[in-house]
């Protein structure tokens, strides 16, 4: 039987594997796995690494995550308050940028690896690499410069500044966020992360008009990615659709892995990618809270039938809601393993 890294490599190279890679993004569920509260769980990189390894072994999927929660990035830029829920992801509880003057005061640490908020994540990543390196890809999550301000000042205020200016201040903030991104991606690469999920809802025309994508989003994405290149980078718009910009992303950014929205047409996405990269079909995992076993299997079958022919395809989830019953996770995964087998054709 192949391991996750072999399956992923085969998907990238378009060579034969036993089945398609399956990425199941279980994060907060790690707390349940270890019998801890979500706050206790995320206090330690050892907890997260242990739970990631346990959950992967228990369910048999192909990825491991060094990500704790998205708000962690705001901590690296000065956020001191995180609000923990008992049944969902932690939230940023204090905006680093409360007024425009705070933008000039925003400091990007020279060495983010020495920041205490990064230390635990780094600890987790190192454990995952030591235990499963080379066998299962370790994923890191990075927020694009254009989306990062939403974590620092709130989406509402950021949207206002982005669309209405002042442009000078907006660009000052984006410059700092792009600098932060470049440092962060370099740190993850140095620590051995295999997959770098580049998250940017502003890279989707569900969020911004196409002209804005071409004139503003694209240049900032180039700024983020140019220094380090796109090796291991996955294009992801945080559940927003992006089939209509894939061609531009390939041409201008050179990214080769596309983690679609559950609302994107998988066959269409794959047709646009046209063998130049890997297309990831992503299930609407909120429905895993409600669907019956038969409905889950039918949806997985539909998705895989749309994406598997010709290979270079991966089955994935968004960030799986905490409350999804374990039985439904298993049903989804068993269906993905079954329908994703290449010898079944």
């Amino acid at each position: 039987m192949m391991n996750g890294m072999e399956r992923l490599t085969a998907a990238i190279n378009g060579t034969l594997a036993d089945r398609i890679p399956v990425f199941c993004n279980l994060l907060d569920q790690g707390a349940k796995e270890l019998g801890l509260s979500i706050k206790e769980y995320y206090a330690s990189g050892e907890h997260v690494a242990e739970a990631q390894l346990r959950m992967r072994a228990k369910y048999g999927y192909d990825c491991l995550w060094s990500l704790f929660y998205v708000g962690k990035e705001a901590e690296l830029l000065g956020c001191r308050k995180i609000i923990y829920a008992k049944d969902g992801p932690p939230n940023v509880g204090e905006m680093v940028i409360k007024k425009n003057d705070d933008i000039s005061r925003l400091q990007v640490p020279d060495d983010i690896t020495s920041h205490p908020a990064f230390a635990e994540e780094l600890k987790c990543l190192r454990i995952l690499k030591a235990e499963a390196g080379g066998k299962y890809p370790v994923c890191a999550y990075l927020t694009a410069s254009m989306t990062m301000p939403a974590l620092l000042m709130g989406m509402e205020k950021w949207m206002q500044m982005l669309m209405m200016g002042p442009a000078g201040l907006r660009d000052e903030l984006l410059t700092k966020c792009s600098d932060f991104f470049q440092k962060q991606v370099a740190a993850y690469r140095a620590a051995g992360a295999d997959v770098l999920v580049y998250s940017n809802p502003f890279g989707s025309t569900d969020f911004i008009p196409r002209t804005f994508f071409d004139e503003i989003s694209l240049p900032w994405m180039e700024s983020d990615l140019a220094p380090g290149g796109t090796a291991g980078v996955v294009y992801y718009c945080g559940s927003a659709r992006f089939n209509d910009v894939i061609e531009s992303v390939i041409q201008n950014l050179g990214i080769g892995v596309f983690y679609l929205s559950p609302m994107d047409d998988i066959a269409e996405g794959k047709k646009i990618v046209a063998g130049r990269g890997v297309t990831c079909g992503v299930i609407n995992d909120i429905m895993l809270l409600e669907w019956s076993k038969e409905e889950i299997r039918a949806e997985v079958k539909r998705m895989i039938e749309a994406g598997k022919p010709g290979g270079k395809f991966l089955f994935g989830t968004l960030v799986m809601p905490y409350a999804i019953p374990e039985e439904n996770i298993r049903t989804m995964l068993e269906a993905a393993y079954e329908y994703g087998r290449f010898d079944s054709e």
């Binding site: 949207m159 206002q160 982005l162 669309m163 209405m164 025309t205 569900d206 969020f207 911004i208 008009p209 804005f212």
Partner: peptide, 13 residues
């Protein structure tokens, strides 16, 4: 017809 969130925001604003 592909109206984006930014267009919703600006229309309302």
């Amino acid at each position: 017809q592909g109206v984006s969130l930014a267009q919703h925001f600006m229309a309302a604003q």
